[in-house]
Design a binder for these strands. Structure first.
Length: 321
DNA sequence: GATACATGAAAAG
DNA sequence: TTTTCCTGTATCC
């Protein structure tokens, strides 16, 4: 259940273990055999994330060329990256990446629904890729795609999307996405404001609309609207430009902290409870998310919950106006 | 053993 | 607006 910050961490992990390496690809589960066959034996480039979308570029080892620049903004503008095959993964609600490495690479933390590492405790097998000092762990559960070298393995389970795109298709995918606060390129804040002010849907819904803003999920939308005191039920176009700018900047801060920390902690320092009730452990991490019926850490009003477009929305009716 | 649920999004109605 | 897809875990019999 990852929001955008997790995907940027996945990109970092995949880059650290696979970039510039020749990678073996398999589909232990069997649902991505043709795709794995295309990637198998190819050289990976630097992985990229845009919102919740992950892109890992590949090219045949026979293909000449230098480093190759996999920057998505340049690709979107039509530049040749030197990589013909792009693995595109969206984890959806319960996809996950899990990693194992030998001693040569730091072990990336698992990302997604099952927050456990592969490797430890798992049965190991002498498989292609195993070395004298490192045996590949047996795939656990439904592994759609396994990527590995002699030093590291990444297992992908339960993705919403897992496909191979050519550069034009990658650009088409990016065209449908709004600006990503983690990337925060110049002009992104203006674009965010423009897109928001065109919409009559509640801003609580708009923040999660990936064509307006790519990256925030249910937690960041609740927490950042709380932090900026915006009522999520208000129509997006009805929120002042100033407050929209404040919201964008808060999303930039919150999501980037998420990338840095590897977890979502959004309670402002001054609101962190000195001591917390046993039944309210979440209060240290979240101000409103999953705090229905509890007292607002800022104003004391009772935090509310309701269903909005199929997802649970949490907010404080006291201080979000 | 059901069953509900999850930090998502697209398709179907 | 509802259904569907993808998987694993928690919780309830």
């Amino acid at each position: 259940m990852p929001e955008g910050h997790s995907i940027h961490r996945v990109a970092g992990a995949l880059t650290s273990i696979f970039a510039r390496e020749q990678v073996q690809a398999r589909s232990p589960q069997g649902r991505f055999i043709a795709g794995a066959q295309i990637l198998d034996g190819q050289q990976a480039g630097v992985a990229q994330a845009w919102g919740k979308h992950l892109f890992l570029p590949f090219r045949p080892t026979s293909q000449p060329g230098g480093e190759g620049d996999t920057d998505l903004a340049k690709l979107q503008a039509g530049a040749d990256t030197g990589y013909p095959n792009w693995l595109h993964v969206h984890l959806g609600l319960y996809g996950s990446w899990r990693f194992d490495t030998d001693q040569s690479h730091p072990l990336p933390h698992a990302i997604g629904a099952p927050r456990v590492r592969i490797g430890e405790g798992d049965e190991r097998v002498e498989d292609a890729g195993s070395t004298e000092t490192w045996l590949l762990p047996q795939p656990r559960g439904q592994v759609r795609l396994r990527l590995h070298t002699e030093h590291a393995v990444a297992d992908l389970s339960g993705p919403n999307r897992c496909e191979i795109l050519d550069p034009v298709q990658v650009a088409d995918t990016l065209d449908k996405l709004g600006p990503d606060p983690i990337r925060d390129h110049s002009g992104d804040e203006d674009r965010f404001v423009t897109l928001m002010r065109r919409r009559s849907i509640p801003i609580g819904q708009a923040v999660m609309d990936q064509s307006i803003c790519a990256g925030p999920g249910n937690i960041y939308r609740a927490e950042c609207l709380f932090r900026t005191r915006i009522n999520p039920n208000r129509a997006a176009k009805q929120v002042s430009e100033n407050r929209l700018r404040t919201l964008w900047r808060d999303l930039v801060v919150a999501l980037r902290e998420g990338v840095r920390d590897g977890k979502i902690i959004t309670v402002p320092t001054e609101l962190v409870p000195a001591h917390i009730a046993p039944e309210d452990k979440e209060a240290r991490r979240f101000a409103v998310y999953h705090r229905t019926g509890r007292s607002c850490l800022r104003c004391g009003a009772t935090v509310r919950e309701k269903n909005l477009a199929g997802r649970k929305l949490f907010w404080c009716p006291g201080c979000q106006n």
